[in-house]
Simulated scan of single mutants.
Amino acid sequence: MSAQSLERRTRNYLSNNVPQIQEHGGHFEIEDVNDETGEVTIAIGGACSGCGIAPMTMKAIKQRIADEFDDVSEVTVRQAGGPRAAVMPSKTDEMDQMEEYEDYSPPF
């Protein structure tokens, strides 16, 4: 399959299965797709930049993309940069240790 095909499939998957990102004022961008290695890089931004559960959303996207496509070997999800991006330290490691997030799964 071509990188364009993997990019298109990834974009379609996110649009169809993670509509909450856009519904809540966020956005995603497929930054890079390497068809040969199966590596995909996705950035989330907009309202996601200041959202307290963005780290868990990023973790869920990473896992679900990897599970959805056999030809994906690695998924990187990061917060989009740029002049409008809010600085939000990653809380994923802390949240992973918190009991209330043990079985957390975003509603998408």
Rank of each mutant, 00 (worst) to 15 (best):
Y104S: 05
A85I: 01
A3Y: 04
V87P: 03
G46C: 01
G50T: 05
V72R: 10
G46V: 07
M98I: 00
T92M: 12
I21T: 08
N34M: 08
E99P: 05
A43P: 05
G38F: 00
Y13E: 09
V18N: 06
D70W: 07
G50P: 04
P106L: 05
G38A: 05
F69H: 07
P107L: 14
P19A: 06
T57Q: 03
T41N: 04
D71Y: 06
F108C: 02
A47S: 11
P55C: 09
F69P: 00
D103C: 01
G81N: 12
E68M: 09
D96L: 12
F28S: 04
F28Y: 03
N34F: 04
T10W: 01
S73I: 06
M98G: 07
K62M: 01
R9K: 13
K59C: 09
T41G: 08
L6M: 13
D67V: 06
D35Y: 06
E68P: 06
P55G: 04
N16P: 05
A43Q: 00
I65K: 01
I42A: 03
K62R: 15
K91Y: 11
M58P: 05
A47F: 04
P106Y: 10
R9L: 09
T37S: 11
V33R: 01
L6G: 02
S73R: 10
A47L: 09
T57P: 06
S49I: 08
E29N: 12
V18I: 15
T57S: 10
A60W: 14
Q4T: 15
G81T: 14
I65N: 01
S90M: 09
G81K: 13
R84I: 13
N17M: 06
C48P: 08
D103S: 14
A47C: 03
G52T: 10
E23F: 13
V87W: 13
I21K: 00
G45H: 07
A86T: 12
E7K: 13
V72T: 07
A3I: 01
Q22E: 15
Q79F: 07
R9A: 02
V77S: 06
D32L: 11
A66E: 04
F28A: 10
